[in-house]
Design a binder for these strands. Structure first.
Lengths: 164, 164
DNA sequence: GTCGATCATTTTATACTTAAAATAATTTGG
DNA sequence: CCAAATTATTTTAAGTATAAAATGATCGAC
């Protein structure tokens, strides 16, 4: 009996089942963790995940960034950022000022309050994430990082090819 | 010079940076692919991702399932499913009937039209996914599957421990 | 049998999200 | 300089999402 030809007979030329299963597993994993983080943020700090994410982007820089920068970094639409920023200005976590040189541009940055609150949340957040991945060895994590980087590159290539 | 102690000095006892970076990479990867799939579905079939996902769940079974089943499988809230189902009934893709034995329960299933349309979409969808992951070798995919399964288990353990 | 607990679903209120169109400001090629 | 293209942001409309409360139905212990 020829095992190779058997194997080939089972796998049709256009069988993309393994990729699909990979995608579903990736999605399940992310949704699961995202839901967990969302719950923790709400329960512990009464803050939503999108607000936390926006503040996280702003916390990386000292002097603020534009709405476009924010929407690119967060990988969400412009209109989405407009609304989020509005509510965070309202609650006193960020402030906005119009550029001196280009009146289309708005610079957004954390207020003192916003940065202080974010730092507190970020510290807890990091612990939750560490616990969520606690069963993974350092080697597992390294491998996952490597493979996800490869997957990301592949997806970007695919998206680019389609748009081109 | 003692390299080990140097390394330890840099990594504080509570440094959970690698887990955080892993989470951000996982999230980026998923968001990227999800956006790509969303665009393709809209452009090619004028359908949204949540609708596609709901139909995908229903396509797995012959005789339908309840709203609760749906919300659990899709990992979204009950109210969310209510709205999605409403719109898909409206468009003729699914139908609903109340259980004979338990009048609280609604069984949802694909209509003939719904199943036919879903199958067409699913075939294309599978090709898009295959292309998105095309740079990954079969071994990469196996490894990712394994590590994501481990991550999923870890996240579930963590979530369960918190709720308990 | 019936009261209380539980369960399935819907409703409500609010927030988030997108795509696409609109607005407003700047840049650029001729 | 000036029209056309580009860029940054906002607005709009529709849909997606959550949490929490409400509703309606069934189950279980007594």
């Amino acid at each position: 009996m020829n095992l190779d030809s058997e194997t080939k007979a089972v796998e049709l030329p256009d069988d993309h089942g393994t990729e699909l299963r990979l995608w579903l597993r990736l999605l399940t994993c992310t949704t699961l963790i995202e839901g967990e983080v969302r719950s923790q943020l709400r329960e512990t700090f009464d803050v939503t995940l999108p607000r936390f994410d926006l503040m996280a982007q702003l916390d990386k820089v000292a002097d603020g960034m534009t709405l476009s920068d924010l929407s690119k970094r967060m990988m969400v639409s412009n209109g989405n950022v407009t609304g989020l920023v509005e509510r965070l200005v309202e609650s006193g976590h960020i402030d906005r000022r119009t550029s001196e040189t280009d009146r289309r541009v708005q610079f957004i940055r954390l207020t003192k309050l916003g940065r202080a609150e974010f730092r507190k949340m970020a510290a807890e957040h990091e612990k939750w994430i560490a616990d969520i991945f606690a069963d993974l060895s350092p080697k597992d994590i390294r491998e996952l990082m490597r493979l996800l980087a490869k997957a990301k590159g592949s997806a970007q290539r695919s998206a680019k090819a389609r748009t081109a």
